[in-house]
Amino acid sequence: MRNRLFVGFATAGLILVSGVGTATQASAATPTGSSGAAVPTAVGKTANAAVQPAIVSGCSASYFCFWNNANYNDGPGKVSGNNLNWGYFQHITCPNGSWGGCASSLDNAGTSGMGVYVFSGADWGGYDACIADNATYSNLAGWNYGASGVNMNDTIWSNKWTWDC
C-alpha cells in the first residue's frame, strides 16, 4: 500500500506549518505547472492537507480514474493514455451517456510519476488543470480550474499525461 499526500492550494494564499506546529499565512499566486497549466484551486477554502492511504477502491495502479459522483461513487472510468474526447467512453448513468462532462471524483494512480492535465473541452481545449501523481479529489464541486473561477465538477472532456505538474 502506498501513502498519498493531497495538498489543495487556495487562490488567496497558502498555509505553511513551522517546525513547532504553529501555522502562518503566506502570500502566494495561483500555483501552475512549469508549462503554465493551472493547479486546481479550492473553492472558498484555505489550503488543506489530507492523507489518502491507498489507491481509491476500484481504481488500479497505472491508471487515471474518475467517478460520476462525489466520494468515488459510480465508476470508475479508467484511462492510461492521452484522450482527446471522453465523449467516446460510454457510461450509461452519466447525463449524456458518456464520461464527457461527467467526472465528479478523480484519482491519479499512475506509476510513472507523471501528472495528468484535464481539460474542460474536447481536443485538449478550454480550461485546464494539472492533477499531480498520486493526487485524489473526492468532490470536484469544491475545485476550480486554477484562478479561472470555472468549476471542475462535471466539466472534464479530455486528458493528457505530463511531467509539468
Rank of each mutant, 00 (worst) to 15 (best):
R2M: 02
R4N: 07
L5Y: 08
F6P: 00
A12P: 00
A12G: 03
L16V: 12
V20R: 11
V20I: 10
T22H: 08
A23Q: 05
T24E: 05
T24D: 04
Q25F: 08
A26R: 05
S27I: 05
T32Y: 00
T32P: 00
S34C: 07
S35G: 15
G36F: 03
G36A: 06
G36R: 07
A37R: 11
P40T: 05
T41P: 00
T41C: 07
A42L: 15
V43N: 08
K45E: 14
T46A: 14
N48V: 11
A49M: 13
A50E: 12
A50M: 07
V51L: 12
V56M: 14
S57N: 15
S57M: 11
G58I: 06
C59W: 00
C59R: 01
S60K: 14
Y63L: 07
Y63I: 01
F66W: 14
N68V: 12
A70L: 08
N71M: 11
Y72L: 07
N73Y: 10
D74T: 15
D74K: 13
P76M: 08
G77A: 10
S80V: 12
L84K: 12
W86V: 00
G87F: 10
F89W: 12
F89Q: 13
T93H: 13
C94Y: 04
P95W: 05
G97H: 05
G97R: 00
W99C: 01
G101C: 08
C102F: 04
S104K: 02
S105H: 01
D107H: 04
N108T: 09
T111Y: 08
G113H: 09
V116F: 05
V116Q: 03
D123P: 01
D123C: 02
G126I: 03
N134P: 00
A135H: 04
A135W: 07
A135K: 01
T136L: 08
N139Q: 11
L140V: 06
N144W: 05
Y145W: 10
Y145R: 02
S148P: 07
G149F: 12
N151E: 06
T155I: 05
I156D: 02
S158D: 05
S158C: 09
K160W: 14
W161Q: 12
T162P: 04
W163F: 14
W163E: 10
D164R: 09
